[in-house]
Design a protein around this nucleic acid. Structure first.
Lengths: 207, 207
DNA sequence: TCCGCTCTTGACCAAGTGATCAAGAATTAA
DNA sequence: TTAATTCTTGATCACTTGGTCAAGAGCGGA
């Protein structure tokens, strides 16, 4: 009706610079946290002047939530693909392997979330209570089903999921500690994947 | 020899105020991280004026390392008491239970360390590479011994220790996420303790 | 009581930081 | 080419923050 609504089409430059900014923001926010990071740092990191950066994102917080949203979806993909029709031990093994590889290949995203949650999850609180809870409840029900069928050792499925999250992300979030204690051997992540899958499989396979 | 060295005896007021400051610093640093916390916040939190606080600790960083050192020792006590002469499954069960209760009773210390490690462990890096590595290596050797005797399922002991750390501290460090997903039932920590001990015991007990 | 030492504080400073703005440069569509 | 729009930036502001300092208040031993 009436005049055509102004469509917010994105310029080439706009898309390009926003991409640049989000990449730099992930770098800086994951390393220093929200308060520890400065707009100057992000601007310098992507070769833009500070006012220019603030032309694309008016406030520091806008950059932060943008980069959070930008990575949240990918981060939950492995859990989403946990398949009720699959073989339980296989499904969970695949989940653990995918998750630890994700931590290895994208430790900055892991640290970004860890920092956000550690400091109260003020920016993603609603997401946790909404979509995340829904997803986890759905998958927890699947696991409960497998347990009821006797195809898995009994365990509270929520705690199982927390345990998988905690153990896999540990290698990204606590990297300096892991390195210091192990001396950082080249096959660290491979042995971690092996140890974790064995531990969970042995713990979950019915005797 | 010669003149007696000046003994830095501590005044009553000194000891009392330093205690006050460290308590407040744990509160503030664990909630906001090193850069996110302000000296004003800490001062207000313990009812001292900022210059007065800086009379006891010259720099913000001094407060930070003091509170880190003040809690580090207690934090590692459970691992220290892992006993080579004990029964393996019992020892590890006790370790997990002690660790998760420590997380429940002192989540702020957990978050303080988590934040420190997450941001590069610059203040405790040497401690990690020295005393911590020594302690972990010693206990890993004990676990390896148990495995060699066939009293435990084979698993890389370092990764086992990481898994225990990660799963138990998860409930303190990622509390907002855990609360959001579970709805925070009153028996959360009890069921967590149960689920984790079962998982690890089932995974480690030889078949 | 008296004196030296410890403790406390209001005022202040320099650096850093998030954000604004006006004016100019570059790009795009006609 | 031209005019409108988008993009870029130097200068600047208001505010926060770690840290200093001089001066005074309080405390403890002789």
């Amino acid at each position: 009706m009436g005049a055509a609504t102004t469509i917010p089409r994105k310029t080439r430059i706009q898309a390009q610079n926003e991409e640049l900014i989000l990449r730099a923001a992930l770098e800086v926010f994951s390393a220093y946290g929200f308060r520890g990071a400065t707009v100057d740092q992000i601007a310098a990191s992507c070769g833009l002047s500070k006012p220019n950066l603030l032309y694309y994102f008016r406030r520091k917080e806008d950059i932060y939530v943008a980069v959070l949203e930008h990575t949240l979806h990918d981060w939950l993909e492995p859990l989403r693909s946990l398949d009720a029709a699959g073989e339980p031990i296989e499904e969970i093994t695949r989940y653990i392997r995918t998750k630890i590889r994700l931590s290895r290949d994208n430790p900055k995203a892991s640290r970004l979330f860890a920092n956000e949650i550690l400091h109260g999850a003020t920016a993603v609180g609603n997401y946790l209570k909404g979509p995340l809870k829904e997803l986890v409840d759905e998958k927890a029900a699947i696991i409960s089903g497998w347990i009821a069928e006797g195809r898995l050792n009994p365990i509270d499925p929520h705690h199982l999921i927390f345990a998988i999250w905690a153990t896999t992300q540990h290698y990204a979030d606590f990297e300096p500690q892991v390195s210091a204690v192990t001396g950082n051997p080249p096959d660290l992540m491979a042995t971690a994947e092996e140890a974790l899958t064995r531990l969970f499989v042995e713990g979950l396979r019915p005797r």
